[in-house]
Amino acid sequence: MTKSILLVGVGGQGTILASKLLTIGLMAAGYDVKMSEIHGMSQRGGSVSSQIRYGEKVESPVIEAGGADILVAFEKMEAMRWIDYLKLDGKVIVNDYEINSMPILSGKIDYPKGIIDELSSKAQTIVINAAGHAEQLGNSKVMNIILLGAIIKTMGLEHIDWEKIARENIKASLVDINLEAIKKGQVLF
């Protein structure tokens, strides 16, 4: 059975590294893996998404509406933007983190209130303060890897040798903190 993981966020949040490690791990574990990203203009700050599908044999690299097993949102409002890609019984992992978009920054619209409540009323929702935990670990940039840890737990992928994958794909000086982040993401809920 093919599983679908949809990672969404804002450009610069590290969704690409998180999904890269995830796909390498899935491949090492013997799954067929496909991943799709849309990237165009190189500006900072737009909506970004990575779609990962794995299983015995994967057909489409694209997750369809109502097709994701989990939706992992690196930013709260992005979870709402993509929720119609989630299966009715899918799970949401949401980073309790806000990044204002241009209409909000310019004072035209307020950042929507009650997103976590709305998400929780629609789907099983796991809320993580990844930014806070990343700062506690000593590097706010590992927020993405804490979320990767949460994905590993939610999808039952603990049997994969993530330490080996981290060592082979992350700069040596940053491996330890990233390993801590992967572990942290698995014990938060």
Binding site: G46, M80, I83, D84, L86, I104
Partner: peptide
């Protein structure tokens, strides 16, 4: 698909 409150999403151009 899950129906949701579209007011909870602000564009991110």
């Amino acid at each position: 698909t899950i129906e949701y409150d579209k007011n909870k999403v602000v564009p991110r151009p």
